[in-house]
């Protein structure tokens, strides 16, 4: 269970990005998670909830964009369809060995945050 450590780092990355906006709080962070990163999206969601609990960002949302790995055939020069969580060794069309590509993403893409009320109206 390393998702908590990753969630804490994502939180810290967000806080660094929001440094020019004092008092802002996170509304939603969007991350890309590749299939080969050994990060489980559901666990990362729970970990995010725990990571921001008690901070001004409590209740914020983490949106995870799943990036599957691809199986590429050098013979057909094309990606081959595969079932999630399964791998093919040989191309079903030409019999050449398939390679696994992609699925390495673990990136913070976008951050939505709420700035505190601009001019304090002393209302």
């Amino acid at each position: 269970m390393h998702e908590l450590g990753i969630a804490l780092e994502i939180h810290r990355t967000c806080r660094e990005a929001m440094a020019p906006h004092p008092g802002a709080r996170i509304e939603r962070v969007t991350v890309a998670v590749g299939e080969l990163t050994a990060v489980e999206p559901d666990l990362l969601e729970s970990a995010w909830e725990a990571a921001v609990a008690g901070s001004p960002d409590e209740g914020s949302e983490i949106r995870i964009l799943w990036r599957p790995a691809r199986q590429y055939c050098a013979g057909c020069r094309a990606d081959k369809p595969r079932a999630e969580g399964s791998w093919l060794r040989l191309c079903p069309d030409c019999g050449m060995p398939l390679a696994v590509e992609g699925g390495e993403e673990l990136d913070v893409l976008e951050l939505a945050f709420i700035e505190p009320d601009g001019e304090d109206t002393d209302g």
């Binding site: 780092e9 810290r12 990355t13 962070v29 991350v31 893409l109 939505a112 709420i114 700035e115 601009g118």
Partner: peptide, 18 residues
Amino acid sequence: MGESKVVRVQRNALEINR
């Protein structure tokens, strides 16, 4: 309620470890 803003970050999630 404050103003909502969106910024692109484009950084690895394990940037600090990196």
